[in-house]
Amino acid sequence: MISFHVLFPVAVVAGFVGAMSGMGGGIILIPALTLLGVSIKHAIAISILSVIATSSGSASAYVRDHITNLKVGMFLEMFTIVGALAGAAITLAISARPLYIAFGAVLLGSWLALLIVGHETWQAVTQQDPISRWLELEGSYPDLTLGQTIHYKARRAYIGAPLMFGAGMIAGLLGIGAGAVKVLIHDLVMGLPPKVSTTTSNLIIGVTALAGTSVYLAAGLISPGLAAPIILGVVLGAFLGTRLLVRLSNHSVRRFFLFILLILSVEMIIRGIRGA
């Protein structure tokens, strides 16, 4: 068993990065835990449990800042939770090496996607399709950087929904919040403003992670001895990260994560291929 003074700081860093990106702490936590000698399935299980904490902790602040869109969140959660249950069931069934490669590939995909999206500025949706209108997917939020209230509408919920099933599946499969994937769907497909998409994805992540965690708990992969210090560290890190997000511009947040994502994805793919 790894000691508290190793697990705790690792978890603090993971929580910090996870909250700032809206991706959950898993992207740092899982590679770090496997490097410390934890099996990848245990790492995935602990990570998705800690993702509940990261997500709930930071979502509590975002929600009270009125940035999160509860309806968008509730609608998409219907799809992510079913995906998460399926994803976690797959993880229980397969061996470790494909999990490493899948983990690296998802991170690399997120990296590529964020790189592309990062150069675009948000364009408000003017024409809403009938389905998204029926689903009442719209809202407004106070933007502290611009000093004004932004009104927005979401579109193409009918494409976003099945894609969110996939995002939920990735979350359950790999024990990550898969926030980057969710943010991407919100941004590119549904046309939500970046801050709304990051914070709403954070809300969705908590419920999605709960579905995944239940499967891992039932499988005996949640080790409380490992979970305790990690949850404490992750929440402390997330708390610090959240306080920073509201003040930072979208651009600087993205650039920081692109760098971290790239390194981690390459590292995980190499380990999957080598079989370490």
Binding site: S56, M74, L210
Partner: peptide
Amino acid sequence: VNMGIAILMLTPFLRVLAS
């Protein structure tokens, strides 16, 4: 510790219930 983990898991559940 177990109760802490259980409450953590019930938190998003309660949130959905409240919604």
